[in-house]
């Protein structure tokens, strides 16, 4: 994260034109450089203080995420484990959030680690987004099984991902993938979405 903003390249730099070929069936885009922090919190007495810093409650239910807008703008907090969360915020906020969260945790047992460079973010939406993901992901993404706020860590085309369901009915998904797997996954998505290029939106 010491990279100079003017010179740094996102893992999927240069893929935009290939992604846009999938529209309008699937709108696929990279949202690079989001601030990402792993938060370990064993002592739940500090959960309230952490929530105040983020402006969002920590998700209590496994495989869910919470979202909202707080003092640091829009924030999403994903459940990664019984005492582990992933905080997603706007690019450039990692340092600020890191110290704010450390302060909230205080001396209690916990950890805050800046992992912004670990993963890049893909957003998928459109009428065929769910079908495209179903080609390589075993999770049932139908709104009845995966409603808004679902967060799963699973495999997509055998690559480890974190998948957030932002809008189940409209089929809006966020896929977080490790930087070293990003080009593989991008190539897989473009290939798996080939059949949807013929898709035309029905006239209303």
């Amino acid at each position: 994260m010491t990279a100079d903003i003017a010179t740094r390249r996102s893992p999927l730099d240069g893929w935009t034109s290939r992604f846009t070929e999938l529209a309008p069936a699937v709108r696929l885009a990279e949202r690079p450089f989001l601030a990402q922090l792993t938060l370990r919190l064993t002592d739940t007495s500090r959960a309230a203080a952490v929530s105040r810093v983020l402006g969002v409650e920590l998700p209590e239910t496994p495989c869910t995420f919470s979202s909202g807008t707080g003092p640091h703008g829009p924030v999403e907090v994903a459940w990664l484990g019984p005492d582990e969360y992933l905080v997603l915020a706007q690019p450039g906020l990692q340092r600020t959030l890191e110290s704010a969260l450390r302060e909230a945790i205080g001396d209690t047992h916990g950890a805050v680690v800046d992992v912004s460079a670990q993963r890049t973010t893909l957003t998928l939406s459109g009428p065929r987004a769910r079908d495209l993901l179903a080609h390589g992901c075993a999770i049932d993404l139908h709104p009845s099984a995966s409603p808004i706020g679902t967060c799963v860590q699973t495999l997509l085309a055998q690559a480890g991902i974190i998948l957030l369901v932002r809008d189940a009915d409209a089929g809006e998904f966020v896929v977080l993938v490790r930087a070293s797997f990003a080009t593989y996954l991008a190539a897989w998505l473009v290939d798996a979405g080939m059949e949807y290029r013929e898709y035309r939106e029905q006239p209303v």
Binding site: P62, C63, G81, P82, A138, V152, Q153, T154, L155
Partner: peptide
């Protein structure tokens, strides 16, 4: 494929384990 129910995440495919 066999599904294994993780105590936290629920039933998932065996390859995840």
């Amino acid at each position: 494929m066999q599904l294994i129910p993780c105590p936290w995440c629920g039933p998932r495919e065996e390859v995840e384990f």
